[in-house]
Design a protein around this nucleic acid. Structure first.
Length: 606
DNA sequence: GTAGGGTTAG
C-alpha cells in the first residue's frame, strides 16, 4: 500500500515523464534532486509516504541518494517513525555509514538506546566502517543506559579508528563518563582537548552536577569565564543554577540571573523555572513568586516548582490557590505536583483538605499514589497530632512502607511526645537498611525529653554498635559570594574572636528578654550548666553572630543547615529576630523557617 | 552531495 494514494493523484511535483530536450542522465539527476528536496520538505507521514511511493515508481530508490534521505528523514523527523524507517533501511542492499548513522540517531531520538547499540553491532558485522558521525549518538546511548563496559569498548574503537581528536566525539565522551559516574574520566578527556568549546564546558559542568559536586560546578563556571571568551548558554547556566539551588547561595544565583539578563534576550521556560526554583530554595520566596507572576508562558513544571516552594516556606493556603489556578488553566496535573499540594496541606495543617486532594488525585485525575504521596498523608495526620490514625493509615497502605514513611511517623511521634508509638516507628525503621544516625537521635531525644536516661544511653549504644556516627550539624552563610561554614563550638573562623564577642553580647540581650536555654534536646545526662555551655555555641548561633557582624543593619540573614535545628536554636533565633530587628531565614533540610519579630513561619511545628 | 556534541526545573 505504500505510496498507493499518490498513484491516483496528479503528479504536480514531478517533471512530466515526456522528454524535455535534455539528456536522460541530466533528466534523471534533476528528478533525483527534486525527489530529495520533496523528501526533506515532508511535513508529516502522509506526505512522506507519497514521495516514497513516487521514488519507488520512478526507480530512483536503487541508484541514488534518495534512499539515504528517505531513511534519515523518516528516522529523524519529529513526525517520523522508526518502524517505517527500518522497513526502508532493510531494503537497501548495501547500506553505507550514512544510513547506519541515521538509524542509530533515530533510535537515540526515540530513547531506544538498546536498539541503537544493536544497530552499531550490525554495522560492524557487515563490515561498514563507522565514522566520526557515528559516535556522538552512540555515546549518548551508552550515557542513557549507564553502560560502562560497552562505553569503554566503544572508546577503544574510537581510539583505534582515530576519531578521538574530533571535538564532537570528545564532548560526547565527557558526557558519557559523567552520566556513568566516572567523573575523573570526564576530566581526563576534557584536559586532553585542544579546542574546548562551550559544549565541552557545559558537558563537564553537567557531569559534576549529575554527581552532586555542586562546589565544583561553581568553580568550573568561574574557571570557564576566566579562560574562555565565549558566553555561556542557557543549558550551561541551568546546571550552574542547580548548583546554587543546592548550596543555597543566593548571591551567586543572583549573579547568574544578572549574567542571563545581560547576555540573552528572552529566557525560555526551563531557565525561568530554574531561576524561580533557585530564588525559592535560596530563601528569597518573594523574588521567586514575582518572577513566576511575570512569566509569559508557564508549564506544569513551573507550577510544580512554585507550589512545592510555597509549601516548604509554610504558605500552604497560597500554594493551594496556585494549584486551583493551574487546574483552571486546564493544565492536567501530574503526580509530582500533588506531592507539593499534599505537603502544602500538611504544613498548613489543613487535614480535611489534604484528604480531599488525596482522593481527588486518585479518583478525578487517575493518579496512582506513590510512596511520596503516602508520606505526605502520614505527615499530614501525624503533624496534626492524629498519630493513631496515621499508624492505621500506614498499616493499610497497599505498598510496603519504606524507611521514609517510618521516619516521618517517628518525627510526628516526637513532636507530640508519644513515646509508645515512637518506639513502634523506630522498631520498624531500624529494620530497614537505610537507617541513619539522625533516626537514632530522634528516638534518643524523645527519651531525653521524657527523662528516660537509661533508654537514651541504650539508644546511643545501639547507634554506636551499628557504626553510625553522629552527623555534625553545620550552618552555612554566604557573604559577598563566599560561603562560610560553621560547626558546633567552631573556633576555626578567622573572625573567631569577634564572633564569640558578639555571641556573648547576644546572650546578654536575650537574658533581658527572659530567655532561658532549653536543654531538653542535649543528649547527655550531664549537669545543667554543661548542657547550657554546649547549646550556646551551636553552629546556627555562630552563623547568626557572624552575619550580624558582617551584613548591614536591616538586611535579611539567610542560613542553610545540613540537619534539623534543635528546639533551643529555634527559640533563640525567634528572639534574636525581634531584638536585632532582622528577618532570619533558615533552610532546615527541606523546609524554611522565616524568623521575624519574635515568631517563626513554621508556627513551632517542624 | 546528505548529518553530529552539552539540554536542564520538582
Amino acid at each position: 500500500m505504500v505510496g498507493a494514494s499518490v498513484l491516483n493523484q496528479p503528479q504536480q511535483f514531478l517533471i512530466p515523464p515526456e522528454h524535455n530536450g535534455k539528456s536522460p542522465e541530466v533528466d534523471f539527476n534533476q528528478k533525483e534532486q527534486e525527489c530529495i528536496s520533496l523528501v526533506k520538505r515532508s511535513k508529516n507521514m502522509e506526505e512522506f509516504k507519497q514521495v516514497h511511493g513516487q521514488i519507488l515508481k520512478l526507480g530512483l530508490f536503487w541508484s541514488s541518494f534518495c534512499a539515504s534521505n528517505l531513511v534519515a528523514t523518516c528516522a529523524l523527523s519529529e513526525w517520523g517513525s522508526m518502524d517505517y524507517a527500518c522497513s526502508i533501511f532493510e531494503q537497501i542492499d548495501d547500506p553505507s555509514s550514512f544510513e547506519f548513522n541515521a538509524m542509530i540517531r533515530g533510535y537515540i531520538k526515540d530513547m531506544n538506546s538498546e536498539e541503537a547499540l544493536f544497530t552499531y553491532l550490525e554495522m560492524l558485522e557487515m563490515g561498514v566502517k563507522p565514522d566520526n558521525f557515528t559516535y556522538p549518538a552512540l555515546l549518548k546511548g551508552c550515557a542513557f543506559l549507564s553502560a560502562i563496559e560497552e562505553g569503554i569498548q566503544i572508546h577503544g574503537q574510537i581510539l583505534k579508528l582515530g576519531f578521538v581528536e574530533d571535538a564532537f566525539v570528545q564532548n560526547s565522551l565527557i558526557n558519557k563518563y559523567g552520566k556513568c559516574g566516572r567523573i575523573s574520566d570526564s576530566c581526563t578527556v576534557f584536559e586532553h582537548m585542544d579546542q574546548k568549546t562551550i559544549a565541552s564546558w557545559s558537558a563537564l559542568i553537567a557531569a559534576h552536577a549529575n554527581m552532586g559536586f555542586w562546589d565544583e560546578c561553581l568553580k568550573l563556571f568561574s574557571q570557564m569565564n576566566r579562560e574562555g571568551c565565549w558566553r555561556a548558554e542557557e543549558s550551561t547556566l541551568v546546571s550552574v543554577l542547580l548548583a546554587c539551588t543546592h548550596l543555597g547561595v543566593l548571591d551567586s544565583g543572583r549573579a547568574i540571573h544578572g549574567y542571563l539578563l545581560r547576555n540573552l534576550t528572552g529566557l525560555n521556560v526551563a531557565v525561568e523555572t530554574s531561576l524561580i526554583d533557585m530564588y525559592i530554595h535560596c530563601g528569597n520566596l518573594d523574588k521567586g513568586i514575582c518572577l513566576f507572576r511575570g512569566m509569559g508562558r508557564r508549564n506544569r513544571k513551573s507550577y510544580s516548582v512554585v507550589i512545592s516552594g510555597l509549601a516548604t516556606h509554610g504558605h500552604g493556603e497560597e500554594a493551594l490557590k496556585i494549584f486551583e489556578q493551574m487546574l483552571e488553566e486546564r493544565s492536567e496535573p501530574e503526580d509530582v505536583v500533588y506531592v507539593g499540594v499534599l505537603s502544602a496541606c500538611s504544613r498548613a495543617r489543613l487535614v480535611k483538605e489534604g484528604k480531599k486532594y488525596f482522593d481527588r488525585m486518585r479518583f478525578e485525575h487517575g493518579i496512582e499514589p506513590t510512596m511520596q504521596h503516602y508520606g505526605c498523608i502520614v505527615d499530614l495526620m501525624g503533624r496534626a497530632g492524629m498519630v493513631y490514625e496515621a499508624l492505621e493509615f500506614i498499616k493499610a497502605m497497599p505498598i510496603e512502607p519504606n524507611d521514609v514513611i517510618w521516619r516521618i511517623f517517628l518525627s510526628s511521634c516526637k513532636i507530640h511526645q508519644n513515646v509508645e508509638l515512637g518506639e513502634i516507628a523506630a522498631e520498624n525503621l531500624f529494620k530497614k537498611t537505610t537507617q541513619n544516625a539522625c533516626d537514632y537521635l530522634m528516638l534518643s531525644n524523645m527519651y531525653a525529653h521524657a527523662q528516660r536516661w537509661d533508654d537514651v544511653s541504650l539508644t546511643r549504644v545501639k547507634m554506636a554498635q551499628k557504626g553510625l556516627d553522629h552527623v555534625p550539624g553545620s550552618s552555612f552563610v554566604e557573604v559577598k559570594r563566599k560561603v562560610h561554614r560553621f560547626v558546633s563550638n567552631d573556633r576555626s573562623h578567622p573572625q573567631c574572636h569577634e564572633i564569640y564577642e558578639m555571641l556573648h553580647q547576644m546572650e546578654w540581650q536575650l537574658k533581658f528578654e527572659g530567655y532561658s536555654p532549653d536543654t531538653s534536646e542535649v543528649l547527655l545526662d550531664v549537669d545543667e550548666e554543661e548542657k547550657k555551655d554546649r547549646l550556646s555555641s551551636h553552629s546556627q548561633k555562630l552563623a547568626i553572630a557572624f552575619s550580624l557582624i558582617n551584613t548591614s543593619q536591616g538586611s535579611p540573614i539567610r542560613i542553610v543547615r545540613n540537619v534539623r535545628m534543635c528546639s533551643d536554636c529555634h527559640t533563640y533565633t525567634k528572639l534574636i529576630s525581634a531584638i536585632y530587628e532582622r528577618m532570619i531565614i533558615v533552610r532546615d533540610r527541606n523546609i524554611f523557617h522565616h524568623f521575624s519579630d519574635g515568631t517563626c513561619s513554621c508556627k513551632d511545628y517542624w
